[in-house]
Amino acid sequence: MKVGLFIPCYVDAAFPEVGVASLRLLRYLGVDVDYPEGQTCCGQPMANAGYEKDAEPLIHKFGGLFAGYDYVVAPSVSCTAFIRMNYPRHKCRVNAVDIVEFVHDVLRPAGPLGRFPHKVSLHNSCHGVRELGLSSPSEQNIPQFNKIRDLLSLVEGIQVLEPERKDECCGFGGLFSIEESAVSRQMGCDKIRRHAATGAEFVTGPDSACLMQLSAAARRLGIDMGFKHVVEILAAGL
């Protein structure tokens, strides 16, 4: 099984600890993971803004870099979802999986993972829920499940809570946050208040972009909470 790690541009630049935790977690679980050099961005920010065509060279660059891998694993649900939903249109075939999916569905660890003796509020990112199927969408009448929660249950000492409106959007949305800054801010503030209301010390989720949006809202409102990507918790102390 050949596994390539994709660390999206904003994680690379702003949240390197999430990349480090991804590597540690995968290696702890016995995966011989590659990190192909020269990777940058999957093209999502430009495409969501209406410039998918202009991002085509990036899409093909990505496809070339990750050709031959059985799995391209990334700690970011929106990038993974973008690749899965849109790359086939450009005849670019890579098997992109989010790290939560990969660990939950492919590696299926039974034993304990990290140790994180804290109360955390789970942020179910939209593209994880509605495009990758990490959890059952609150809108649908299907059996309830949550792969993130399943994995967090393997972490020692953790208490996992969910906010009211468990999968309502945080309001980031890429360039949405700039173009519709007032609505975006409002959504972020509403969301972080619900996370805070759980009484949790940390917010965790499968996408650092959502966490970045929520941490900005927390700062604005003076809410004192920590923000950890799911892999940081799964790999805590490994």
């Binding site: 495409a47 209406g50 060279p57």
Partner: peptide, 27 residues
């Protein structure tokens, strides 16, 4: 809505997208 954005790309976002593309294309 995603598809409409591709058909009618907002002029206001062209510059920022071009800059991002240029940066990301060149390691």
């Amino acid at each position: 809505i995603y598809a409409w954005r591709q058909e009618w790309p907002a002029a206001g976002k062209k510059l920022i997208c071009s800059v991002m593309n240029a940066v990301y294309k060149n390691e």
